[in-house]
Design a protein around this nucleic acid. Structure first.
Length: 258
DNA sequence: ATGACGCATCGAATGCGA
């Protein structure tokens, strides 16, 4: 079973890229972030025709918005973090029917946080606290769990193109990295690091200053798997191909095979 | 460099992303 996370930076602007990508990469589950559209604008028909009849959508106007697209049925769909009040549409969870055993999938568009010390950074910290408690409880109920999405955290120095120049800036702070480690501490593991990967592997590149062409990027899109799944993970990789297409998302899709 | 690029918004200049 292949599961992908992709921050598309507006599904309206990126629908054709998504359709082209799944035509070439027929993954079983596609988790999207930054839909930037309301539920009524979600292109259900086009997505269904592309092979994904089962969709859990949690949209929002202009900003945020997440969705899980699946070839197999979804159940127990939950939106946002239970017990954490949030005006943003940032999390959607669903149980995915899978032949080797159902999987709980939690798809998140983590808070960006702008800059350490800012109000948005404080929101990021409190949001991450809420998420940790939520994932802890979900793990209790669903041992076979995948937490994936745009984490907006570069977990280690090797996940940044300029770890020294960007030290303690957003995505690189000790506080953010501690939150990432806390998630691992719940019994999750970073599926990307289960395998040998090329150096300077990133999942996001700035649109400005030829960021992609110079490979000035960050690895901030992650797929964490719970302990019972760990031994079954067959691979994890970043697909840079759609980042080279015309008018791309600034993020690349990341796929795990379980 | 309060930049750059791209997307969204009752329609232009601004907020936001990372």
């Amino acid at each position: 079973m292949k599961i992908t996370t992709w921050n598309v930076n507006s599904l309206t602007a990126r629908l054709q890229h998504v359709l082209d990508w799944v035509a070439a990469n027929p993954v079983d589950v596609l988790c999207l972030q930054e839909l930037k559209l309301t539920d009524d604008k979600f292109p259900l028909e086009a997505i269904r025709e592309a092979g994904y009849p089962h969709c859990a959508v949690f949209g929002q106007k202009t900003y945020n918005g997440v969705a899980i697209l699946s070839r197999t049925p979804l159940r127990d769909i939950a939106k946002n973090i239970a017990g954490f009040e949030d005006e943003h549409s940032r999390v959607i969870a669903a149980t995915v029917e899978a032949p080797q055993g159902d999987l709980r999938v939690i798809n998140g568009y983590f808070v960006n946080g702008q800059a350490p010390g800012s109000e948005k950074f404080a929101y990021k910290m409190s949001w991450l606290g809420g998420l940790n408690a939520y994932v802890c409880e979900e793990l209790r109920q669903h041992p076979r769990l995948v937490l994936l999405g745009d984490f907006n955290i570069a977990p280690e120095d090797r996940d940044s193109w300029d770890p020294d120049g960007l030290r303690d800036t957003i995505h690189h702070t000790r506080e953010e990295r501690e939150h990432f480690q806390r998630l691992l501490g719940l019994g999750l593991c970073d599926s990307f690091r289960l395998f040998e990967q090329p150096e300077k592997s990133f999942s996001w590149w700035d649109y400005r200053m030829l960021g992609y062409q110079k490979n000035r990027g960050l690895r901030i899109d992650h797929i964490l798997v719970s302990e019972p799944l760990r031994a079954h993970v067959k691979g994890c990789g970043i697909d840079r191909v759609p980042r080279k297409w015309k008018q791309p998302s600034d993020h690349a899709p990341v796929t795990v095979e379980i």
